[in-house]
Write a protein that binds this DNA or RNA. Structure first.
Lengths: 128, 128, 128, 128
DNA sequence: GTGGTCTAGACCACT
DNA sequence: GTGGTCTAGACCACG
């Protein structure tokens, strides 16, 4: 799993990390049941603090993507443990709505956005 | 322009406000060349801090959506002043990519996301 | 709100703190809508680290007891926002079951435990 | 004695195990004077680490529930060896107090908690 | 060796 | 002035 974080982004490091891991799960690069690198390992390989990685893992656990076993490691959950609830759907739609509003303002029509979505999904072509 | 902000939310107030105004521009509810409410007016009607409104307006100005005329008000720019640059496109795509990754993990397929995009665009049916 | 923490307990400080705050809410010592002391204030008055208080507040927020408003403070929610769900009930029952098992082993009968419960509720006699 | 442990749980495995054994003593499923399964046996049948079982047994011994005979096994003590001391009573009351505080916050009244206690004791209907 | 807790101190975002 | 983020480093609980 290759992860690059932007140190000077307005998006918090732990959030970027979370997004990258979700991305890796989506592509199938990280399989269900697989163990993620330990907090120490990942923090040192990314040259960031241990607690930052910890926070990312903790949040992923709250959102259902992983299970943290104390003293043993962090495991990727099976797909059914984080299938979208109605609330998740609502949140995703709100994000899309905000993006589309900006896109429309900037003269991008629906087709262009849909193309982007398709392109994004194609990128996630993993066999998961 | 009816604006509702969520005081508790992981999204900063100024950004929520920014998003709402962009949304209003997208629907045509706020026309090009039109004047936005003054900082004082808006902050008091939303019961939020004056600085928060100010920050939202400043950001909108940086992104090209409005022009701030000192002491005279804030005007919505014409469409051509904030048409998407390549960089804007790239940023939008990155956002979509992150959303699609989460969506795929949560077992939503491309069609569902595309439906959401269409629905979002339909909501923005204004004549701008 | 008088809070005493045991530094050498096997129960984490942030957990003790959480329990004390819930207790204060239960007695009505801290009213709904009221603002809790700031992270810095409380950490310094308890002579513990800021992050420890922060963790307690964050968990209370996740459990629905308080709302954290960035830049403004931490507010106690209204009662209906943390009424027991079925899952909460189940968890509470499991805790009681474990306690009763130990109590029975130690030759305490049901009446003694029930007396303790009544006594506990009497202590929480606040008008909330 | 059927024991199910939750690998992911905020409660340590050794404590879950301890609680289950106390529960089995309370129901009479495990009789006084009886021998508990060996550390190796139990650890392998539960698929957990040998040290974890060891820790649970050691704790039970400290609390007076069992006697560990080196090289010969672990025996359940007679009831009088772990009858509640004043200190035990105090600890149990503190736990109940914390639970009741949360319960009251979550709008459960004393009767509901007492019902749970009665239900818990009924479950422990063994003849010990 | 794993994650959890706690401390200490810095800087930032937000109101 | 509020909470949020990040770093650094120590020690503990757990398996």
């Amino acid at each position: 799993m290759i992860i690059k974080l932007l140190l000077d982004s307005d998006i918090p490091l732990y959030q970027q990390l979370k997004d990258k891991i979700v991305y890796a799960i989506a592509t199938g690069e990280v399989k269900q049941g697989e163990q993620l690198p330990s907090v120490r390992q990942l923090s040192s390989s990314l040259s960031i603090n241990l607690h930052t990685v910890n926070k990312a893992y903790t949040q992923l656990s709250v959102e259902g993507f992983v299970t943290i076993l104390k003293g043993r490691g962090v495991l990727v959950n099976t797909k059914d443990m984080y299938a979208a609830s109605d609330n998740d759907r609502k949140k995703i739609f709100e994000q899309i709505q905000t993006i589309c509003a900006e896109a429309k303002c900037r003269s991008l029509d629906a087709d262009e956005i849909i193309n982007m979505c398709n392109k994004a999904y194609t990128t996630l072509k993993g066999d998961n």
